[in-house]
Each structure stands twice: as structure tokens, then as C-alpha cells.
């Protein structure tokens, strides 16, 4: 207990531990911020050749329209390895389009079109859900995503 002698003495204690501590905290925050900035920048970049899917949210179901005009309600069929760009909007209240397994999340706001993109890497069946409270059946506003083998 030699070093803390300074710490105990409140009237003339040293302030350097606190400065070092603040320095460490700030360094960590800079690291977190820089990493997050970089990944967000990479993730947000939409590939040129992404196929467009129009997503429309409504209390309490999802409808999808492919680029070729095919419409689907409550389910979506995509091809493995193809980049897709979603244009998301809503007809009534705010919803949030979410494919948890692919970390796709974007609010569906009436009067606005929000975009997000992803590539379905693995074939299979995935859940889609609403992640913004939208009323009575919010808990059941789900849809199925089928990724077909390329």
C-alpha cells in the first residue's frame, strides 16, 4: 500500500491517474468510433448490379415486388449469391423490415423510400419480421424468406 498514499490524501492527491484513465477511455472510444465508421462505410455501399425488390409494409403483412413485376405476399423467393437491393416503404404506420439472420434492418416509413441491400449467401428458409411497434398484430407481422440454390 505505498502507491495509493497519494490517493488517500484528498487535499493534495495527484490527478494523473484520472487523466491517464480519461486518456484510456478516449482512446477506446476513438477506436470504437473508427471501426464502426469503417464497417458502416463498407456495408452501406450498394453494388451496381443489385436486383431491385420493392417492399411494402402494411398493418400487418409484407408484400414484395420483384424487378420483373412478380408480386409476393408474406413470402419472398430469392436466388443464392445474387445481390438484392430493397426499396422499403409503408402504406399506413411505421414498420421495420428485418431479416434477423442476415442482419437486414430498415424502417418502413410512409411517404419515404428507404434502401438497404444484402446478398443471400446460404440457401434455405429464413424468418422475416417487423421490428417497430405497429399495433395489434405487430408480434405476428412475419414473413418467410426462401433462398433458392443457385
Amino acid at each position: 500500500m505505498k502507491a495509493p498514499e497519494n490517493w488517500i490524501d484528498m487535499s493534495e492527491h495527484s490527478h494523473w491517474p484520472e487523466w491517464v484513465y480519461i486518456g484510456v477511455v478516449v482512446a477506446l472510444l476513438v477506436y470504437v468510433g473508427a471501426e464502426a465508421w469503417n464497417i458502416e462505410r463498407i456495408v452501406e455501399h450498394i453494388p451496381e448490379d443489385a436486383e431491385l425488390i420493392t417492399v411494402t409494409a402494411q398493418q400487418w403483412f409484407w408484400s414484395f415486388e420483384h424487378e420483373d413485376g412478380t408480386k409476393e405476399i408474406g413470402e419472398l423467393h430469392l436466388k443464392q449469391g445474387v445481390p438484392y437491393k430493397f426499396e422499403i416503404t409503408s402504406k399506413d404506420v411505421i414498420h421495420s423490415f428485418n431479416i434477423p439472420d442476415y442482419l437486414v434492418l430498415m424502417d418502413a416509413v410512409p411517404g419515404r423510400i428507404n434502401t438497404i441491400w444484402f446478398v443471400p449467401v446460404d440457401a434455405g428458409e429464413y424468418e422475416m419480421q417487423c421490428r417497430e411497434y405497429c399495433g395489434l398484430l405487430h408480434y405476428n407481422m412475419r414473413a418467410k424468406l426462401y433462398v433458392e440454390k443457385a
Binding site: E35, I39, V43, P47, L103, F118, V119, V121
Partner: peptide
């Protein structure tokens, strides 16, 4: 590399 396109799952979960 996961493929031609970036896999957001990999990037975000790694972060």
C-alpha cells in the same frame, strides 16, 4: 473472402 460480394453478416458480426 466470402464471394464476389461482401457478406454483411461477416462484417457486422466481426465488428
Amino acid at each position: 473472402e466470402v464471394g464476389e460480394y461482401l457478406d454483411r453478416r461477416v462484417e457486422i458480426w466481426n465488428l
